[in-house]
Design a protein around this nucleic acid. Structure first.
Lengths: 132, 132
DNA sequence: TATCAAATTAGAATTATTCTTGTCAAGTAC
DNA sequence: GTACTTGACAAGAATAATTCTAATTTGATA
């Protein structure tokens, strides 16, 4: 929780519940996952609040919005630079912290100013491999 | 067009128009982009046909579905292994063909069988840099 | 404690995508 | 040639994720 303090956010109970749910979470939850979990404590919680809070957090660098899943956005509270391993069957996402130093050859930069990168590794997770 | 022949598809005029639009296209168009373009020739074209054709193509390896854009799927007729450079402002996507040989350290594999990877480079494109 | 901007809520609206159903067209069997 | 069969198409309805709206409430602080 500490890391969310004093970044200028009004600390409402709803936000605290969302932050609390996200903190240390390695599941890369969707907005609905978050909504369902936090609704248990706050039955009046609305999706607007979930999305608003996530967007505010994202703008302030408190959470990453992942576009890995074609069906919905997923969110990653781990804001250290890292990469992902994705199961093609169950869509499970796992963090990878390997140190890759990647650059774009000048001939391919197309005039872009490069800011960062993200590697997605695709594969089949152990659970899905078993249940074939 | 040649490359789409004999992959078992009935070559209807609608499909030909979609294939023709995709062939050599470097814009990574969305379903709507495709729909709009092809509708000019086929005013009765429906989204169902666009999505059906894209899904059929995807299953047969004729097109890649990109999940880079958080708002919609985008499609890439370039099926050679390659990576992407994405403008954070205008969402323009550019192909990169640099040869990166990436592996996941065994300690991080989490039991996954790795099948492939995809690098996304983020940045600002020349046009957006100017119009700041 | 009064104030006020910011946050919350419920539900409506929007957008992308998928589904349903009826129709049509091409190919094949007879 | 005619009847089947199958796959593709079209139109619009349905769904799912997300965003917006408007009214109300709340947290921070003076």
């Amino acid at each position: 929780m500490e890391k969310y303090k004093d970044i200028g956010l009004k600390l409402t109970p709803q936000r605290l519940a969302i932050l609390n749910y996200l903190d240390g979470n390695k599941e890369h939850p969707s907005a609905e996952d978050i909504y369902r979990a936090v609704s248990k404590k706050f039955p009046t919680m609305s999706f607007a609040t979930v999305y608003n809070t996530l967007e505010t957090l994202r703008q302030r660098g408190g959470v990453l919005e992942l576009t890995i899943d074609p069906d919905k956005k997923r969110f990653d509270p781990n804001i250290e630079p890292h990469h992902h391993l994705i199961c093609l069957k169950c869509k499970r996402i796992v963090d990878i912290h390997g140190d890759y130093k990647l650059g774009v050859p000048n001939g391919e930069k197309a005039g872009f100013e490069i800011i960062g990168n993200h590697i997605e590794f695709y594969g089949i997770c152990p659970k899905c491999k078993k249940s074939d």
